[in-house]
Design a protein around this nucleic acid. Structure first.
Lengths: 242, 242
DNA sequence: GCACTCAAAATGTCAGACAATTGCGGACGG
DNA sequence: CCGTCCGCAATTGTCTGACATTTTGAGTGC
């Protein structure tokens, strides 16, 4: 961890990569303190601003955290699920919006992943998860709800479904897929009739999970995917025409 | 986009967040040029090093790219799948290694997600995907292969399975789950007998996908998950004893 | 023994300068 | 008229040095 030739890429990027590799490979463990900025600049033979740019790169990825004061410094950060969620959602959202991912493709991915969770969720969902789903269903049935709020509630409902599987790795992976869909879903205008259909399917999902009925949940998800797809296609068709 | 009070968090973080929000919200579009560092420091009323730290944070997340020279500057970067893959894998790997995720939980998540891809892959896999799988199966049957190479080949095989679904969003989401498992898989010592069993299951998966047999692929994946689980548990038991 | 003060260490921020790179336009020659 | 070359200007990359701010801990006085 001392390589800094006259490569073409930034010194700060090289230093950040060197430290990142040390962290990922396990050479530096969680909560271990990095050398101070002055020591690093001495060690890498660069100036302090360059070291700082490297540290900011790492901080942006939540690989380190910094603390001021006498016993302060930069520390290897324990990457928590909540932080990782946020980055995942941001990245997934941008991927979808910048790469002209069609509604169909995104929808297919989302429901394929959710259906992977459904059997586990049917087995393990807690009363808490069921309560969250019931509450969101109730909210979605309110007449005055805006389209944005309806979508937000939809996301909460589906996240409860995913979390019900009791597998944090699955929850983490799914967070991106489900939440990144929200901007696409927000384009849909939910009529009273379509809301009724969705609430009905949500109810069937919650009922099936409560009854530990994996097959029923899967079937309802398949129908929900098909219905969501038609709603999305209607929007696209209307947009193409208008 | 001009908020900089005397908050407690770094100015560079605030500036980075402001610009990130502008990008995520769509206020800045792909390939749009940001103001120069001098202009930004003027606009935000901070010094140029502070602006640079903010830009490095964004660059670390692949949100912008920079270019030197007269017509250079910082540009909103089109986030590509390949870049996102890398970050996803790094993040997932660290999440697993830093949060004491058990082999069982990681394994369950991985196969749940792969099984979500299997039906789509059975429908759409190209000859290319099949050829990749066959090649990796052949490699895995070589006697002199190291455990690491066997694991790497395993990852390639499963990525071909996932890519066969023809859904880039799915591929992106799965990349993290599959590749982040590799360090855990590397702990396993693959005996000749266990390799034979795995190669057999891989062959069944490839055969099923070639025959467009979603059910067969799913069944083989279920068996592969169960078998991988026993291998992992043996390692854990041996480690606990020794 | 307790509270207060102050020094030291570290990060955060600033100002100014120079180096390196790159595109563009103008000058020059054919 | 056209092409080539040179140099300038704009921009990022890097360095130096300084000061501000925060935090801890040790010393000091009561």
């Amino acid at each position: 961890m001392k390589i800094d030739p006259d490569k073409k890429i930034d010194l700060s990027a090289q230093i950040a990569n060197a430290i990142r590799d040390a962290i990922v490979s396990g050479d530096m463990i969680v909560d271990e303190r990095l050398p101070s900025e002055a020591e690093l600049s001495d060690q890498f033979q660069v100036s302090r601003p360059t070291v700082r740019e490297a540290l900011k790169r790492l901080a942006a990825q939540s690989l380190i955290r910094t603390q001021r004061g006498a016993t302060g410094g930069a520390f290897v950060n324990r990457l928590r699920y909540e932080e990782a969620y946020g980055q995942q959602v941001t990245t997934s959202t941008l991927l979808l919006s910048m790469n002209e991912v069609s509604f169909d493709v995104a929808c297919e991915a989302r429901y394929a992943l959710e259906r992977a969770c459904a059997p586990l969720s049917a087995e393990r969902r807690s009363p808490d998860h069921l309560a969250t789903m019931r509450a969101e269903i109730h909210r979605q049935a309110q007449p005055g709800l805006s389209d944005e709020s309806f979508c937000a509630s939809d996301v909460t409902f589906h996240r409860a479904l995913v979390d019900g599987a009791g597998n944090p790795v699955l929850s983490y992976q799914l967070a991106g897929a489900v939440e990144a869909m929200q901007p696409l879903m927000n384009m849909i205008t939910f009529t009273a009739r379509s809301r009724e259909a969705i609430v009905g399917l949500h109810t069937r999902i919650a009922d099936a999970l409560e009854a530990h009925d994996a097959g029923g949940a899967d079937q309802a998800l398949v129908e929900l995917e098909a219905y969501t797809l038609t709603l999305g296609r209607d929007v696209m068709a209307a947009r193409a025409k208008g």
